[in-house]
Design a protein around this nucleic acid. Structure first.
Lengths: 364, 364
DNA sequence: CTGAAAGCGCTAACAT
DNA sequence: ATGTTAGCGCTTTCAG
């Protein structure tokens, strides 16, 4: 069958241990021996069997990434960043899509994505109310996103509240006073801490700080957050006759849908309505007008998540270290939809990363 | 450490062989024994070690998917479909992004994406001129896309030429006569059979059949195919003063960029310029106007690619079966950018799938 | 239908 | 600095 270490050892006239040392870059290998082994490896076209290595060492070199679905651009870009970050650490990534139904997500949590060294999990259907499902997880796990807070696992997320506040403050700075928000969750139970809840909170804070009244008519509920939902909700807002001069879409996908609806209605952007989204997906750069947005720090999220996961993997299963929470640095990206033709992707840094070593409270 | 088959066997008072038989759904297991074993498995929370299974059986249950980059929406949607199709066959997918440079793609081809049962590879930098690199591939491989034709591997692709012809015919049917095309490749060497070359060929065929003159000024070269490139090329076409009443963008991403540029220039779509793209990515459904496009049959591509790969895996490495070529069914999706407000995502089927069992010529 | 035992290719003690 | 060897957990002959 295939070439094994033994074959290499025979050809190089050394033991398998020496071959192993060479392959794994162990020290204490005589340069001459090393090159002889390398020669033999090249000659035979030897490549280590990763199943055997995994069996023996308990490490596969593969991690899992579970996202709701790749066809949501935000998750595609997140996966892109995660795969790149993992590659830098010599890890491969099995990608799973679990968000289509709740049971699928439960299965993912129960088993990981096959047998991997660890899992990066961005849940969609599971929420903080399901946090006890995490208690039985017996492999390294890092949570992504804002569905589950306060769990026993490491967590990398965004500054949802303060970034949203900054987004709305940006609209206020343009002189807007009737600011609508698109994407509040229809289920108004408290303490859910979904992205929608946190971002709405930031919206309200900004209004309150500015001394503006809170108008429930301007808080539009939308779920899920696809383009068609954004377009529909926008149509409804327009039809309702409620006046508004700005719109904060809770993610860019909703904003894209709203853009269509606003355009159809004849509103000029930003003249009649200023629009800002959230996520900084690539699509927003070349719409007309281009879309102002919040850059939530995707690369940093990917980098930290991989870093945390690797640490957990190395610490082993019974490490007593408490769960950690990391929120990435964010910034506001000003484009045409809020500042008109003058926009040149100007970026305004607003807040630095924040990292705490206990996951109790403060899930803002 | 973890629970092994041995532990299960002890608890169920059977041999490991019997446990193995149960786990793998082998026949010839007494129902009573089976349930006793299942009981023990549940009680102990046993889960088979996939590294061990992989080592022993030579199959990992993992395949690789190498795309240029996930942040190009087409590839995100392709990966989405591939992962779903793989999941149905109980396969996991390691996703790699190799398109950022040529050496990376060469490495991927040399090693697969780690050690997997097989690879689905959509190259970007490698082309038909590199086809000899495929000769040394010693694992199951299915090519995707239109960069490499005529190689010794199975290949799943699109009806590039006839689908493009259909797209242009759709424009012609709207009464357009000055049809520009965006995305021809700057490197005009022949026989490259890139997506761009094939799609331009379809464009020319349609014009020729319609008896329209071929105007080189209307064939705009663009590479790569990102939104900004589409916008820039469109700006150039507009600035050039060349007249046109329709545009065929060789993919949807270019079309999105062109949409912005056309809008900025004050052109009304489709009144002044009708626009059709290629790929049917989700983003085109909610632009204003929504984007007519060619649906290249992504789900069918994913499904067939997985199917072919599984067959290759099962046939083993020395199967003499010749490489196969499959082109998915396509159709034209008529939206507002060609037919105006009347559009309702009407879909026109134009051609059926085509499958041949030798990969010589006919790479249309 | 079930059991015993070999061994997949590798790593890591331990020995030299 | 290099060699010897046990054994990771599973599947798979081969017997019974």
């Amino acid at each position: 069958m295939s070439v094994t270490m033994r074959d290499v050892a025979v050809l190089a006239r050394v033991s398998v241990k020496t071959v192993s040392n060479v392959v794994n870059n162990h020290p204490h290998v005589h340069p001459v021996t090393r090159s002889r082994v390398e020669q033999a490896i090249a000659e035979l076209g030897y490549r280590p069997n990763l199943s055997a290595r995994g069996l023996r060492s308990g490490r596969t070199g593969v991690i899992g990434l579970a996202v709701p679905e790749l066809r949501q651009n935000y998750f595609a870009e997140l996966a892109d960043a995660v795969i790149l970050a993992a590659e830098r650490q010599n890890l491969s990534v099995i990608v799973g899509q679990a968000g289509r139904d709740r049971q699928h997500e439960i299965n993912v949590l129960a088993n990981g994505l096959r047998q991997t060294d660890g899992l990066l999990f961005s849940p969609e259907r599971l929420g903080t109310e399901d946090v006890e499902l995490l208690d039985v997880v017996d492999y390294p796990l890092v949570l992504l996103g804002e569905r589950i807070f306060g769990g026993p696992a490491d967590h990398v997320t965004m500054h949802n509240v303060s970034a949203s506040r900054a987004a709305v403050e940006h609209l206020l700075a343009q002189g807007r006073r009737r600011i609508a928000v698109l994407g509040a969750h229809p289920d108004r139970r408290e303490n859910q801490l979904r992205a929608s809840d946190l971002r709405v909170r930031g919206y309200r804070e900004a209004l309150e700080i500015a001394g503006l009244p809170h108008d429930p008519d301007l808080e539009r509920m939308v779920a899920p957050w696809h383009q068609e939902d954004g377009a529909r909700a926008m149509d409804e807002l327009i039809d309702s006759g409620v006046e508004f001069d700005a719109l904060f879409a809770l993610n860019d996908t909703l904003a894209l849908g709203a853009l269509r609806s606003l355009g159809k209605s004849g509103r000029r952007i930003p003249d009649d309505v200023a629009l800002i989204g959230f996520d900084n997906i690539t699509d927003g750069r070349f719409t007309l007008p281009s879309l102002s947005t919040v850059d939530p720090g995707r690369d940093e999220i990917a980098e930290r998540a991989i870093g945390m996961l690797i640490e957990r993997i190395e610490w082993g299963p019974r490490s007593p270290r408490p769960p950690r929470l990391h929120k990435a640095r964010f910034h506001i990206v000003e484009r045409e939809s809020t500042v008109g033709g003058a926009a040149t992707d100007r970026t305004v840094r607003n807040e630095v990363a924040e990292s705490v070593d206990f996951s109790t409270d403060s899930a803002t």
